[in-house]
Design a protein around this nucleic acid. Structure first.
Lengths: 249, 249
DNA sequence: AGTGTTTATCGTCAGGAAGACGACTATGAT
DNA sequence: ATCATAGTCGTCTTCCTGACGATAAACACT
């Protein structure tokens, strides 16, 4: 058989699933929707849906994101024209185990979205309920009652690990922040994503000393209490060199 | 419409494509096959083929790899039982632009394979010709006559970039080496993949000083000429911390 | 007004890692 | 014997980080 015979191919369903991460109340949270139908009816799952015949994968992911959250995505691939605006979206990995969906053969292209803290999930489309859940809860002990549907626990774990490692060597952590933010707010993002405590003084030295990472806006804020802090925007740099080091243990 | 209605979904063809990288004569090379039929007849392309209804994505990639090269893959996920044996395989990314194949909607899950230098590509299966080509050649100037079919130039570029960055912080470079190798051979792998020159003394200090990276076998070899060099096997460590630094510029 | 608390920011110091590079060693080739 | 080639061990300087002291500027009390 020809490896590219277009007339005889096994048909697959292709979906996109979304790992939408944000930082809420010092914890890394993800968007979960409750399934309204079998299989896994009533269980939590990652948002997602079928790819349409005429859209590409990133487009399908962006569409699902708007439908579920109202969030707009910075043009993928293009360096953000207005850093801090909108969310970051990237492809995560593809999951295609023959048995991952009991009904049929579904290949799901998972995407990772990093978003600033949002007011509240609007249950758009057909999702009759949606919520931000701490990833600790969803990935907690094995066999948890709150376990995610399908292989979504694995997808979420992969997405979280991707985010954890990517903020080491890129400026992506700013995607969790509003357009203007303080060094302390950025530090709390790192602390939430890595679930560690960082030294405020060394962190400040590191981020302000990395060229192109942060651009001072001139303003200050006191919204965190304490001494007023300088406000920054994300700079043009996307890669951190040397990287931010994740503490051991 | 329900996002998971199994009865009405747009059918896609799902394929795997392989970026098989190796180091030959101090150059990073990839496996290319010549297409025997339209579209892109006579052009070079990455090896690949349809995913079968009952196999998972990594399994399809491993099967295609055996068909094309005879190469066996270490059980993916499992830490290599015999490091240096077989090839490393991992998922790279998924390409699903609606127009990427002019005939039909094809979503391709690209995989990356790192292999030691192999004798010669055996044109297995139906590939009437296959060769190792330096990635420089295939990715050279835009609009080259030798350009790859479909979006395979993009896939290859992504695979090369993945390999280049992954040998920074992992011990994956040993996947390009035979089971036993010298520090100099490993250094030449880094030099070929990164296309840079590295200081032999600092490189030696770095790799021998990283716990778990290299295990001396006791033997020595002189196959490179010059003073006999110690032979090593890949150690159990998979992550390099701190990473190997890629020289700037 | 004064005191404590919180957060931000600057500075100092010691230790580790890396780049540059000198020196020596052990082979084969001429 | 001499040279060329590769491998291996050291040294020195520089940069970065982690640990942590000290000061600054706001707010909440009393």
């Amino acid at each position: 058989m020809s490896p590219y015979d277009p007339s005889a191919f096994p048909p697959f369903a292709v979906t996109v699933d979304l790992v939408v991460l944000t930082v809420r109340r010092h914890a890394l949270c993800t968007l979960a929707v409750r399934r309204g139908e079998p299989p896994f009816q009533g269980r939590w799952a990652l948002p997602g849906g079928f790819v349409r015949p005429d859209e590409d994968l990133a487009g399908a992911a962006a569409r699902e994101l708007v439908e579920e959250t109202g969030l707009c995505v910075q043009d993928p691939g293009t360096p953000a024209p207005a850093p801090g605006t909108g969310a970051h979206l990237e492809q995560l990995a593809t999951y295609g185990d023959p048995k991952r969906d009991p009904r049929m053969r579904v290949v799901s292209v998972a995407h990772l979205v990093l978003a600033p803290d949002l007011p509240a999930p609007r249950a758009g489309g057909d999702a009759n309920s949606a919520r931000w859940a701490p990833v600790e809860t969803l990935l907690g002990p094995e066999g948890e009652a709150s376990a995610l549907a399908f292989d979504h626990a694995q997808i979420l774990a992969d997405g979280v690990e991707r985010a954890r490692s990517k903020i080491e060597y890129s400026s992506l952590a700013t995607a969790f922040c509003p357009p203007e933010f303080t060094v302390g707010e950025l530090r709390r993002v790192y602390e939430a994503v890595w679930a560690v405590a960082l030294d405020p003084r060394n962190f400040h030295r590191k981020v302000t000393g990395t060229p192109g990472f942060l651009v001072p806006t001139g303003g200050t804020t006191t919204r965190q209490g304490g001494r007023p802090a300088q406000l920054f925007r994300a700079g043009g740099a996307t890669l951190l060199n040397p990287p931010m080091l994740r503490p051991e243990v």
